[in-house]
């Protein structure tokens, strides 16, 4: 299993992760080595085996629909890199 630099770039786009051109080749090499190792799983017979996503196979945990404590606007915005009034401030979304 071998990933090309182009494939790495494509996955990085999906992950919204900037990777410099200089880092593409080493990343491709390391990921390829890890995938080679991981490919041992293809040899395991899993016919009829259900996937196990979670050790506790819990479903639908409910609580009473009542208002509880939540962060104030100030607390919620305190760590924001940029804000305007009571909002998170982001670069323009339209026109990209």
């Amino acid at each position: 299993m071998s990933l090309s630099a182009d494939e790495v770039r494509q996955v990085a786009d999906l992950a919204r992760l900037e990777i410099s051109d200089a880092d593409l080749e080493p990343m491709a090499r390391q990921l390829s080595a890890i995938l080679d190792y991981i490919n041992q799983l293809q040899k395991v017979n899993t016919d009829g085996v259900e996937p196990l996503a979670h050790a506790l196979e819990l479903h639908d945990v409910f609580r009473e629909d009542v208002t509880g404590h939540s962060l104030s606007v100030e607390e919620a915005l305190a760590n924001a890199p940029a804000r305007k009034n009571d909002f998170y401030r982001v670069p323009p979304v339209f026109g990209e």
Binding site: L41, V49, P51
Partner: peptide, 13 residues
Amino acid sequence: YYLKALKVRRLIR
């Protein structure tokens, strides 16, 4: 990859 891993995860359990 992911689903295969989850199946082997059940075998480990």
